[in-house]
Each structure stands twice: as structure tokens, then as C-alpha cells.
């Protein structure tokens, strides 16, 4: 008739029902089409690259959880995301042993040492990518043309390089990225080719259209804050536009800047790492705009053709400061609080 035992709980007694796993699972889901397109473009080398980075990231996370006696966190999918993102930023023919090492560094130094999920200051995938940039400068800037006829049956030669050797680039396979062609030869790629992805580049950076669609899926499901990609792209567009107006002969169009290199992938899937970005709306706008601005400055004035990675890492570094100064205004306080 009436209950025998009474459960005591604290309010609220209802929950919206989302979970960390659900968010992370959806990010993985949104990345899969981009991965698929990459495999279609670059063949089994890209597939092997993704498998190796993902497995390394998951294994590294597991290892560090064991060592630090923390509960297993592999089921939250965040290490899978790091692995996939890392693969998508690397050249398709990147030697697998280098990829594995980069994945290990990304998780170990970028995440586990900070205390695991929720405590990392930087996007772990970009820590891995930055390591690759520093340790393997030649391999990380050797690009492949998409659509090689034997791509589904044969690995690209450099993929299977013996560990601790650096493969020599094979001219038959290599190609310059649109950003590299602009930087070093002053040539512009067709905007439409950039948009659809029929160009050389990192495994997952080439199709702006596909990245846009996958990002919009996450935004529609409210698993990504749209302000981040909007601010990054807006910041880059405005900065690049200003330079273009100053000297149209020297600088590329802002459209080229938006669609080339890793900016789209970075804006939608790298800068949007919740853990490493600010929490408030105004903070997100500032953070995104800063990344967009820095990307363009590094691209135009730096020694490398691409600057998204460093721009996002710098944005990550600025996040705690942004959060310190930009907080919501509490009801009834009449002023923005900064302390």
C-alpha cells in the first residue's frame, strides 16, 4: 500500500538526460564522415594512420589510468576523439611509427599529466601534432595528391617506414598544399576545389564542405557551441580581409584563407574542445576571434604556411585568463564583475 523504505535524495530530482559519453560519442560520430572522405581520398594509408593514432591514444590513456590508479575512462570516448583528430591533422603518408609516438605524447603530456579529462589546458591532439611538427619536420610537411589509382590496395611508401628512420619523399606521390603553393610559389587554388576538397593536404583538412556539414550536425544537437567556429572563422576572415584590402596583389582573398589548410577543421573540431576553451559567451567570442587573428598572422608572416595549430594552442593558453576576466554578470549586481 504505502512504501516501506524511503529514499532520501537532494533536488533536483529530474535530469535533462545528457551525459559526457553522449557528447563525446556524437563528436566521434561527426568525425566519421570526415575520416571516411579521407580514406576515399588517400586510401588505406589514411585508414592505417587513423587506426594507429586512435589505438595509441586509447592505450596511453588506459596505461596512465592504471599507473595513477584512476578509474578507467576509455569508455568516455575522449581519447578516441584525440586519436581521430590527430590523424586528421597529419599528412596521409605520415609514417605510422611517428604517428604512434605523436599520439602517445598527445595523451601523456597533453592530458594524463594534467589529471585526465576535464583538466587538460590544451587540446591533446594538438599537443601531439605540435610534437610531430617539432620532431619530424620533413615527414609532417610531405603531402600527397588525393585520388591515387592504387590507393586502396597499396600503402603510400612512407607510411610503413621502419621505426626511427625518416623516409625520403618520393616525387611521384608528393604534392604541395594550396597554402604551400601560395606561400612559396604565389599560386592560388580554385575556391571551389578548396570547398569540395579536391586538393592535397592533411588527412582530414581538405573538404571544407564536409567539415561544415559535420560541424553543423553537432551544433544542431547542441553538443558544440556555435560561437567558437563562428568567432574563429569571423576573426580570420576580418583579419585576412583587412590585409587583402591593403594589398590585393600580395595577400590571398579572405575566402582562400577560410577554406585552405586546417582552419575549418580547427575552427569546428579543435578550437571547440570544451575543456580547453572559455565558459562564457563573451569569453568564447574573444577566444575564437583571437585564434582566427593569430592564424592569419602566422600564415602571412611566419616561416610555415600553416598557423592554425599554434593559434589554437595559444588560444587554449589564454582561456584561463579569459575566464578570469570575463564572467557572467550576476542578477542584481548591476555591473560586470571582474576580479
Amino acid at each position: 500500500m504505502t512504501p516501506l523504505q524511503i529514499e532520501l535524495k537532494t533536488s533536483p530530482h529530474v535530469k535533462q538526460g545528457g551525459s559526457v559519453q553522449q557528447i563525446m560519442r556524437n563528436v566521434v560520430l561527426a568525425l566519421l564522415p570526415i575520416c571516411g572522405f579521407s580514406v576515399y581520398h588517400f586510401g588505406i594509408s589514411a585508414l592505417a594512420l587513423m587506426l594507429v593514432t586512435t589505438l595509441t591514444c586509447v592505450a596511453t590513456e588506459q596505461l596512465f589510468n592504471r599507473l595513477s590508479r584512476r578509474p578507467a575512462t576509455v569508455s568516455d570516448y575522449s581519447a578516441v576523439i584525440t586519436g581521430l583528430l590527430l590523424a586528421l591533422t597529419l599528412p596521409p603518408a605520415f609514417p605510422l611509427w611517428m604517428a604512434a609516438l605523436s599520439g602517445f605524447i598527445g595523451i601523456a603530456l597533453g592530458k594524463s599529466l594534467f589529471g585526465g579529462l576535464g583538466f587538460n589546458l590544451f587540446n591533446p591532439a594538438l599537443i601531439g601534432r605540435a610534437f610531430a611538427q617539432g620532431a619530424f619536420p620533413s615527414a609532417v610537411s610531405t603531402w600527397t595528391l588525393p585520388g591515387h589509382p592504387e590507393r586502396f590496395t597499396e600503402f603510400l611508401p612512407s607510411t610503413l617506414a621502419v621505426p626511427f628512420t625518416t623516409p625520403a619523399p618520393v616525387d611521384a606521390y608528393t604534392a604541395a598544399t594550396p597554402l604551400g603553393m601560395w606561400k612559396f610559389q604565389g599560386e592560388h587554388a580554385e575556391t571551389w576545389d578548396l570547398f569540395t576538397g579536391m586538393v592535397a593536404g592533411s588527412a582530414g583538412e581538405t573538404s571544407a564542405l564536409l567539415i561544415l556539414v559535420c560541424g553543423l550536425y553537432l551544433i544542431a544537437r547542441r553538443m558544440m557551441n556555435w560561437r567558437i567556429p563562428a568567432a574563429v572563422l569571423g576573426g580570420a576572415f576580418v583579419t585576412a580581409g583587412a590585409f587583402y584590402l591593403l594589398d590585393p596583389g600580395h595577400y590571398p582573398t579572405p575566402w582562400f584563407v577560410l577554406l585552405s589548410g586546417g582552419l575549418m577543421l580547427g575552427a569546428f573540431f579543435m578550437a571547440s574542445d570544451m575543456v580547453a576553451s572559455p565558459m562564457t559567451r563573451s569569453g568564447l567570442w574573444l577566444y575564437g576571434a583571437l585564434i582566427g587573428f593569430l592564424t592569419v598572422i602566422i600564415r602571412f608572416f611566419g616561416g610555415l604556411p600553416e598557423g592554425v595549430m599554434y593559434a589554437i594552442l595559444l588560444g587554449n593558453a589564454a582561456s584561463p585568463l579569459i575566464d578570469r576576466f570575463i564572467q557572467p554578470r550576476p542578477y542584481g549586481t548591476g555591473k560586470r564583475r571582474a576580479s
Partner: peptide
């Protein structure tokens, strides 16, 4: 889980707290 700083609570708080 640990807080992943997704910011949903900041977007929800009617008082404007963090």
C-alpha cells in the same frame, strides 16, 4: 564525471552565476 567545462550550467543559471 569530471567537469568538462561545457558551459551548459553557465547558459542555464538564471542568476548569472558560474
Amino acid at each position: 564525471h569530471p567537469c568538462i567545462r561545457c558551459g551548459r550550467c553557465v547558459e542555464a543559471c538564471p542568476v548569472g552565476l558560474n
